[in-house]
Design a protein around this nucleic acid. Sequence first.
DNA 1: CTGTGTTCCTGTTCGC
DNA 2: TGCGAACAGGAACACA
Length: 290
Amino acid sequence: MPELPEVETVRRGLEPVLSGRRIITLEQRRPDLRFPFPERFAERVSGRRIESLRRRAKYLIATIEGGEALIMHLGMSGRYLIEKPGTEGATIPAFRHMPQHDHVIFRTEDGATVTYNDPRRFGFMVMTPESELEAHPLLQGLGPEPMGNLLNAAHLATRAAGRSTDLKAFLMDQRNVAGLGNIYVCEALHRSGLSPNRAAKSLARKSGAPTARAERLAAAIRSVIADAIAAGGSSLRDYRQADGALGYFQHSFMVYGKEGDACTTEGCRGRVKRIVQSGRSTFYCSSCQS
DNA sequence: CTGTGTTCCTGTTCGC
DNA sequence: TGCGAACAGGAACACA
């Protein structure tokens, strides 16, 4: 589920509860998610303070007192439920809670509980020495953050030069741009008027220099991600923010999940189509996206 | 190296 | 209302 804006929304929800706080207990309720939990997971976290909670691409990274880092990924269906003391009844259950899928429970020194719930278990948690974070296989090789200065037309053009793959797959590849997923790739392509079927290499001239298309695409990626973060992340079906509030960007989707709807581009009379690329649904308007 | 298909797992939605 | 099939936000991995 979660793409960059949702993960960032989760991070912002968890930060005031976890950052700077000592974890009193960590309860691990099964041996693995997508990958096995870290060896002696509970002992390595319990009694230690969370120093910071950061995000890189779709990863949450908690640095832990003592020099270790906990890398967390939400997969398709991972969520965090926050319960704070003194707020019983005040927080409406954010989603249909299925306790059988509560896999990890963190309890903090000030009585808060953070529960990781993940029905499909595509998420994972791994630990690594903080000094080796940048070299960690999961993190090294990731492309630039969409909100940073490094994501620009020149970068897209350089990465796309000579690539015969289509734009959809190019943007889904985390080595090119970090944090985009199926939804925001579709939305960014629609905003930029580019077809998901277009060859990636058409973003660059033979010299590798960026084209006007690359400029438009870079701007579209930045704006759609910024808008989604500002809206608190999108929500699909029953997805909720970490603190239980709804995300509203889903109401701003122009193409994702809109098969058959009239295209919203001004002056465009096309309809949103759904096609399948690399086994994933792509939504786009063939009239205004080329 | 590049591009493609498979796989992990469970819940929800859709068509009959 | 029931029931099987299709489908779902991700990405590691195997393979041609």
